[in-house]
Design a protein around this nucleic acid. Structure first.
Length: 585
RNA sequence: GCGCCCGUAGCUCAGGGGACAGAGCAGCGGACUUCUAAUCCGCAGGUCGGAGGUUCGAAUCCUCCCGGGCGCGCCA
């Protein structure tokens, strides 16, 4: 369906024919031949650099390759012209009929338009995202990674990859214990004790009060002054479960559902960390050694300590990494090694991990793990999402009503809605910082991309509805419109819209391969722009309106274009999880 | 000190080996009184942070420098 691929095939066939008749020497590598939209639409519809790429190996001037190739390609019925330009580019211009055929594909494709089997042979893909500590509600800072990961997973699925959406629960570390201690304090509080301020290092959030109260109800004062060893584990376990239920609820408010939740604690309990470390010891990838303190930022309490270290430097990391804390428990890194080993054992061939930018320093480490465990058999891609700056009235929004609290995803979704939250999070590349302006995102104007795109979709819906009531007898279903006489669509603005729609499969493919779902959001804004332009043309020139009294045939052709556009918008919005609304309030 | 990310129009950002570097906002000038008003068109705006290098060709790849962000054992 990606017509650039089809044309690439045609060009290769033509090149091979030229090799066959001696115009070109044999043995050329056609792999570097690119077929893509020219930067400047004035140059044509499709451009290829093949003459430039092949010139050296063929020992020919680019033009001597491009001109006979152009002559061959120009013979095709759907090619208007094939011109050699600039240093040796070959530009193709396609007939209107070619674009009409693309529009028909949109209509017959429907919600599947642009779906491909691109990833069918790539093996299983694991997308791990959010993976927030189960110690409280989801913070707005997590939302970007959540939306990014979710949209990326959808994008990959749409492109034929076998995708698993995974959440890693960090329930075995010090944070989970701090949660348990915090809940224990709330429990004592519920029993009437004056606990004063929650000590630093513990979680002061009000949301833990309820857990303390529940404990007081079920346990009475049994754990009130009992030693920590009696209650730490049961409270940890129970609190993590409660927090995870809350986290899932928060994610649900964002329209995000993971299919696999992996528990760090379960890996530890199943002995997976010990087993892996034994294996790595056997491979001499773990040794006893002492680390130097980091230069330039030496911690005050640094004590040289001989400990077990993983030879991460053999796999591109900057230093070897410790496996045990001084209290004997595993470091985060040690259990994460076991977690990645587990993912690999489950048969994933591509691992994508979405992290906040503040975890950037972890990238090399996790790459080192995967390389050590799977070599180049498993591809690892750590995606960092930069921070989101919340703005209100141009000023930084208050991140806290009071110290210790934070803006939750739930708060923001309640205020602006899921669609706005999701779309805005994809209006920047993941590695660029993002401003989230509460005033702007609620505005109904062109400046607000969510509104702009949804408005285009609503306009499509509206004009179809209007036409149906004006012409009750016509069939405006996609299947019927695909058979309309599309040759009536000849205006430059109509063709521009069809070309934009025809570019969708290529956009999806490239976004999927690059792991960049923001390209979908940018595409949608561009598609919407073409539609709005055509709409306004109809206001300036009555003959360009979609609904033409007395010319049912033309009206049907234009309805096909409108429905095609609506389909394109809906499919794209679907991938990023935004509702294609039928009307605006 | 070291590592990673970023530096593109006044502002916010696309483009990540190809042709004259694009869009939105802000500025200026127009169109549209409606198939839902919030839409559209045009003008103006640039040493792609700087300097070298690779290449037929560099905003894009490499090296160094400058500037900003993040991180740098027993947090995750």
């Amino acid at each position: 369906m990606n017509f650039f691929n089809d044309l690439q095939e045609r060009i290769k066939v033509a090149l091979e024919a030229m090799i066959g008749d001696g115009t070109l020497p044999g043995g050329l590598d056609l792999g570097a031949v690119a077929v893509e939209p020219p930067r400047d639409p004035e140059h044509g519809d499709v451009a290829t650099n093949c003459a430039l790429v092949l010139a050296k190996a063929a020992k020919m001037k680019p033009r001597d390759i491009a001109e006979p190739l152009a002559a061959r390609l120009a013979e095709a019925d759907d090619v208007v012209s094939a011109d050699v330009a600039g240093p040796g580019f070959l530009n193709l211009r396609m007939t209107d009929g070619f674009w009409h055929a693309r529009l028909a594909e949109v209509l017959t494709g429907g919600t599947e338009y642009g779906r491909s089997d691109l990833g069918a042979t790539s093996g299983k893909v694991n997308v791990e995202y959010v993976s927030a500590n189960p110690t409280g509600p989801i913070h707005v800072g997590h939302a970007r990674g959540a939306v990014y990961g979710d949209a990326l997973a959808s994008l990959l699925e749409f492109s034929g990859f076998d995708v698993t959406r995974e959440f890693y629960i960090n329930d075995a570390g010090a944070q989970a214990e701090a949660l348990a201690r915090s809940v224990h304090m709330r429990y004592r509080e519920a029993l009437g004790e004056d606990i004063g301020d929650i000590p630093s290092g513990l979680y002061p959030g009000e949301y833990l009060r309820r857990l303390g109260e529940d404990l007081a109800e079920t346990k009475g004062d049994a754990w009130k002054s009992a030693p920590e060893g009696d209650w730490l584990e049961p409270i940890r376990s129970q609190s993590v479960d409660t927090m995870m239920a809350m986290v899932r609820g928060d994610l649900d408010a964002l329209g995000i559902v993971h299919s696999v939740f992996s528990s760090e604690m379960e890996l530890v309990r199943a002995g997976r960390v010990d087993a892996l470390i034994a294996e790595l010891l056997g491979r001499d990838l773990i040794y006893e050694g002492t680390l130097d303190p980091p230069k330039g930022k030496e911690p005050d309490d640094w004590e040289p300590r001989e400990q077990s270290l993983f030879r991460a430097t053999q796999f591109g990391d900057d230093v070897d990494r410790p496996l045990k804390k001084s209290d004997g428990s595993w470091t985060y890194f040690a259990t994460d090694m076991a977690y990645h080993e587990d993912k690999i054992a489950r048969g994933f061939e591509t691992l994508i991990v979405v992290l906040g930018a503040d975890h950037g320093g972890y990238t090399k480490r996790v790459n080192a793990i995967v390389e050590a465990l799977a070599g180049d058999k498993v591809k690892m891609d750590v995606k960092l999402c930069q921070m989101v700056k919340l703005l209100r009235g141009g000023e930084p929004a208050k991140m806290s009503k009071r110290a210790g609290q934070f803006v939750t995803v739930r708060d923001v979704v309640d205020e602006v809605g899921m669609d706005v939250m999701r779309f805005i999070m994809l209006t920047r590349r993941n590695d660029a910082q993002l401003d989230f302006d509460f005033d702007l995102v609620m505005e109904q104007s062109r400046e607000n991309p969510v509104f702009y795109v949804q408005y285009a979709h609503a306009r499509c819906y509206s004009v179809l509805k209007k036409t149906q009531s004006a012409m009750p007898d016509v069939d405006l279903s996609a299947a019927a419109l695909a058979k309309a006489d599309l040759s009536r669509l000849t205006h430059a603005s109509e063709l521009a819209l069809m070309k934009s729609l025809a570019g969708w499969p290529r956009t999806v493919e490239s976004a999927a391969l690059a792991h960049e779902p923001h390209r979908i959001a940018f595409y949608l804004r561009d598609l919407a722009s073409h539609f709005h332009a055509l709409w306004t043309k109809g206001k300036e020139d009555g003959s360009l309106r979609f609904l033409i009294d007395g010319d049912t045939e033309l009206t049907l052709a234009r309805m096909a274009l409108v429905r095609g556009c609506m389909t394109g918008l809906a499919v794209g919005l679907g991938i990023i999880g935004v509702t294609p609304v039928e009307e605006l309030r």
